[in-house]
Every structure is written in structure tokens, then in C-alpha cells.
Simulated scan of single mutants.
Amino acid sequence: MIYTITVNPSIDYVLQLKNLNTGQVNRTSNDVKLPGGKGINVSRILKELQIDSTALGFVGGATGSMFESLLSKHDLKTSFTQVKEDTRINVKINATDQNEETEINGAGPAISSDEKQSFLDNLKDIGKGDVVIMSGSLCKNLDSKFYLDIAEMIQKQGADFVIDTTGQALLDTLPLHPLVVKPNHHELAELFNVTFKNNQEIITYARKLLEKGAKHVLISMAGDGALLVTKDKAYKANAPKGTVINSVGAGDSMIAGFAGTFMETNDPIESFHIGAACGSATAFSQDIAIKSKIDEVYKNISITEV
């Protein structure tokens, strides 16, 4: 079983308009409310790929009830920990004529020590053969090592994990050998305080993450495609042609496609191919990609060794 952890889920209120004019009244041409959170996005893609998962996280208040109502439409298996404070709302503004996306993200609820312990107790049945995917921001009063504590816990129980975070929080988990990590090329450069001139330099520093313990490294590069770096080889996926409608969730979709496929096939190249297709298909969709869009995009992606 795959378990996805969204510590700080949200209702994503996505607004589309031609131009965003600050300090003025703006009117939308379209809007949609979506159940948000990086782990939620992962579970939704896994559902499209017909791979079972259980979504975990903290939800609370009136917005938490609305969040669960929105999520119920997607028929996901969930096991949320209920908290007293409200689930957050994030606002995503897509100004089409300006080709700009603006995000305003809520902080989320404060988590009590009892609520935190209840969440951790919910992880005790995870064990050998399971994969836990941890991603997204933490609630405001959770310790910065929260993900590390979870990784250590589930590793002792025999499970694998995937970590989708950045900075020191990412580096701290590498000695525990995450199945895959996925910084983008800017985040990778920030980790080592460098700048990249070409893909070979990106691959060189991606291998440093392998040396520190990661089993696979995915590097997303927006319009330049993506890289998969393993101990011995590196592969590139091209960026397929298409109109980017909403990039929110594209990285999560890539993680889902890779981890879900790898769990079933143990084939990193095919997992990379499907992961890249999932990521681009979501970028070309208003919401998380559906299976038919993933299949369409998959045909336009080629994987080459570099």
C-alpha cells in the first residue's frame, strides 16, 4: 500500500482572469474550488493510474468539512486526523493575458501535542512492502524535523518512503535512503550554493544526493523537461508540447507516477516515463490530470540516456 501524507491540506480556490490589477477590483472569468495539498495530488494521480493509496493528514473546522466533501468526489481512501483549528484556504490566481500565476497560501491550523500523537499512532500499522510519500509544507507549530521523525519511524517498521521537500529538511532525510527525491533545478542549485550552465552540471550535483543516500533523483526543469539520475546512469525526458493551464500539482503528479509505477514494476526508466507524463498532463489541465490525458501525453515523451 502507498500512504500519502499531507500535513497541511487546503481548499485551493483557483481563479482565472485576463489581467490581475493590484489595488483595483478584479473580476474572474472562471473559478473552481479543489481539494488541495501535495499528498492529496499524489493520491489523486495514483487513483487515475489504478494504484491504491491511503491519504493521511490533519483536517479541521468548517473548512475541513468542506475539504472532505470536495475530496469525496474523487473516491479516495482516507484516514485523516481531526484537529480543532480550521483547514486552510489557498488562493491561486491565473492571469492569462499576463501569463502569470500568483499564489496566496494560508498558514494552516496549529496542531496540539495530542493531535500530533494521534497522527503518529495512525502510522503504526505501516510496514514492509509499504511506501509512504511525504510532501508539502508543515503546519505552523510542528517541529521542522517532523518528516525526519516519520521517516525514521516507518523505516524501523520496514517501509520505504519518498520525501518531496527542499533545503535542510531534504538533506536530513538522505541518510535514511529515500526511494526518490525530486528537487527542481533551482532547488538543487540552492542546496549546494551553485549555478548550473548545462545538464551535465545538474547531473553531477544530483549524484551528490545519491552519495548522501537517495536511491533515485528526479530533477524537474520546467520547459526543459526532466532528468532521472541513478547511481550509474542519467536519463532525460523531453518537455512535450502543450499549453500550460495550471502548474499547481505538476511536481506532485510526477512523484506519484514514478513512485506508483516503481512500486509495481521496479523499473526506474518506465517509472520516469510515466512520472514525466503525469507531470506534464497535469500542467496541461485545469485540475489534476485524468488517465486519458496522461496516456495522450505519454506518447509524446521520449526518454534518452545522457
Rank of each mutant, 00 (worst) to 15 (best):
54 T>A: 05
225 G>F: 09
70 L>Q: 09
272 F>R: 04
228 L>K: 11
139 C>E: 04
133 I>S: 04
98 Q>W: 01
255 I>N: 01
175 P>N: 02
279 G>L: 09
186 H>W: 13
143 D>Y: 13
134 M>L: 15
295 D>Y: 00
203 I>K: 09
275 G>W: 04
121 D>L: 13
24 Q>F: 15
66 M>W: 06
4 T>F: 08
77 K>H: 06
51 I>F: 12
223 G>S: 14
71 L>E: 05
197 K>T: 13
5 I>K: 07
232 D>T: 13
77 K>L: 08
116 K>T: 05
97 D>L: 11
265 T>Y: 00
186 H>A: 15
160 D>Q: 12
189 A>K: 13
68 E>S: 14
88 R>P: 09
153 M>G: 05
298 Y>S: 03
261 T>A: 01
186 H>P: 08
291 K>T: 00
21 N>P: 03
57 G>R: 07
147 Y>W: 12
85 E>L: 11
135 S>C: 07
274 I>P: 04
276 A>V: 04
290 I>F: 00
45 I>H: 11
256 A>S: 04
172 D>I: 05
32 V>Y: 10
8 N>S: 13
49 L>N: 10
81 T>K: 06
64 G>M: 06
125 D>G: 03
45 I>R: 09
226 A>E: 09
225 G>M: 08
260 G>P: 03
16 Q>I: 02
62 A>D: 10
131 V>M: 08
4 T>C: 13
188 L>A: 14
254 M>N: 04
135 S>I: 02
111 I>K: 03
192 F>S: 11
188 L>R: 14
103 E>L: 13
292 S>I: 02
280 S>H: 12
20 L>M: 13
124 K>D: 13
212 K>R: 14
302 S>T: 15
5 I>A: 07
23 G>Q: 13
115 E>D: 12
10 S>V: 10
48 E>W: 10
301 I>E: 10
36 G>Y: 02
26 N>Q: 10
291 K>M: 01
59 V>E: 05
173 T>I: 01
104 I>N: 02
220 S>N: 03
302 S>F: 12
151 A>R: 13
224 D>P: 01
121 D>E: 14
22 T>A: 14
